[in-house]
Amino acid sequence: MLKPSKNTVAVFLKQFRSNIKQPVLVILAGVWLVMGLVFAFFSGEHISQYVSMFMVLIVGMQLTGTTTGYITEDRSTMNLRFMSMAGVKPREYCAGTFAAVFAAAMFICLVYAVVGGFWGPNMFIFLGFTWLASAVSVLLGITMGLSKWPWLTTPVGMLLGLAPMIAAMNENMEDVFRFMYTLQIRRVMDYMAIRAEEEIYEHICAYCGEIVLCIKEETENGVAVLAERGVLEEAIIITLINGVIVLGLFIFMHRKYGLNG
């Protein structure tokens, strides 16, 4: 197993302390969760609907911004340069920063899963997918932070966080933003929210003849299929492709600027 270097541990501890001393990410996640509970109480809808909505905002917008914020702070206080002079390699710095923000993201996702009522296999799917998407967002935040344009994080975060919500209102928009990993979070969350409430049953697909998993809802006209197989697989594939693209950008920024962007 890869052992983190002392420099990575030092950076991790500093960023982790910053997470605790300036808990913007955790507080925002808490505030949104409370808002979700209030909305659910007054609307009579299941809390999982709101967990989905706010999860997209946290993963798409807040994680990216928080990560870039740490790097911007390290740069503005000259610490990036001091660390570089002290022999901290860019990859060690990035690994420490990634680990600290990702740890906070894992904790937040876990709390959302519990409050959202995702138990058993649903929790595995929820956590597996949100952690994967969180990793992409944190890596994107680091990439933006290393670049010469960290201020771009705000509009990019807005796009990543809000586009999936706007897209939900219009099919054409949904198609346009379909290849964005944060929209996939919403799709999986919707799928999970339905899964949390409805029965899953097997039926034989009319087209391919295979046995597939469906989620059904009793309606006046019979049984409506709310979500078919493939949502999760497609979401994972799209998120992984997004992840590879972000990784490519990260490698480019890392090589071009290191800690001196």
Partner: peptide, 22 residues
């Protein structure tokens, strides 16, 4: 004013570099 984090205490500020320099 460089090299310091205002939200961390004095010991925590130095701890980062103490760890880096072993």
């Amino acid at each position: 004013s460089g090299g310091l984090y205002t939200h961390l205490n004095c010991l925590e500020n130095l701890d980062l570099y103490a760890r880096i320099y072993d």
